[in-house]
């Protein structure tokens, strides 16, 4: 069963009097439980594609089905609801709220989902345990290392049991050892059945995924699946 089905997606931006075609017709599917990397140089349309798959933006043309629901026609608060329930984001620069504890940061998506306070706490604690930070729950981001901050962000992404875990250059701001630990965490989550989409421009990181989609000039240049050893 495909969890993501993108067909003929284009995205045009008006830049002054010119129209920029960031995406020029993208079609692919992602199955549940896949670990996939989307690669491409800067300016390739990779970020635009990520915004559309992540429901942060809508395509100009084409259709996008997420979990068999058409989301390409949704906008505003409807997309906010989809992001809240279906997608967990992990960003390059962590994007944690600086004045909130790790626990509060992880609880944030549940607050927007309208979950009961007691359940928020229980689920946020469980998510933090899952990433090995059960003893750092009351720390603020400034009291955590980069790797720990990224793990808090991963816990926040997981707390709503999303269909897709979306990671945009998750190791870009980490040293290689910490980056390796974070990738190991992704592998563990993948092994547990989590669908993961990794956006990166580093071959080394993309190597970790089973499948790699390479974007260039707004089109898919290659879509290759690694042999399972």
């Amino acid at each position: 069963m495909s969890i993501i089905a993108v067909e003929g997606v284009t995205k045009h931006y008006a830049l002054g009097t010119q129209t920029v075609e960031a995406l020029r017709g993208i079609t692919f599917e992602i199955q549940k439980g896949e670990f996939i990397a989307i690669m491409g140089p800067s300016g390739s349309g990779k970020s635009t594609l990520m915004n559309i798959i992540g429901c942060l933006d809508s395509p100009t043309h084409g259709t996008y089905f997420l979990n068999n629901q058409e989301v390409s026609t949704l906008e505003g608060d409807e997309l906010a609801g989809i992001r809240n329930k279906e997608i967990g984001f992990v960003f390059q620069n962590f994007h944690l709220l600086a004045r909130n504890t790790a626990l509060d940061n992880v609880m944030l998506p549940l607050k927007y989902a309208g979950v009961e306070k007691a359940e928020q706490l229980a689920r946020a604690k469980a998510a933090l345990s899952q990433v090995g930070l059960e003893d750092r729950m009351d720390h603020q981001p400034s009291e955590l290392s980069g790797g720990q901050q990224q793990r808090v962000a991963i816990a926040r992404a997981l707390v709503n049991n999303p269909s897709i875990l979306f990671a945009d250059e998750p190791t870009g701001n980490l040293d290689s050892q910490t980056g390796h630990d974070v990738m190991q965490l992704f592998h563990n989550l993948h092994a547990a059945g989590q669908t993961i989409i990794l956006i990166t421009h580093e071959n080394e990181v993309a190597e970790e995924a089973q499948r790699t989609i390479f974007i260039k000039d707004g089109l898919i240049e290659s879509d290759s699946t690694k042999e399972v050893a």
């Binding site: 609801g81 927007y112 709503n160």
Partner: peptide
């Protein structure tokens, strides 16, 4: 970020 995490208008 808040919007990405599902905050409505």
């Amino acid at each position: 970020l808040r919007k990405a995490l599902g905050a409505t208008h």
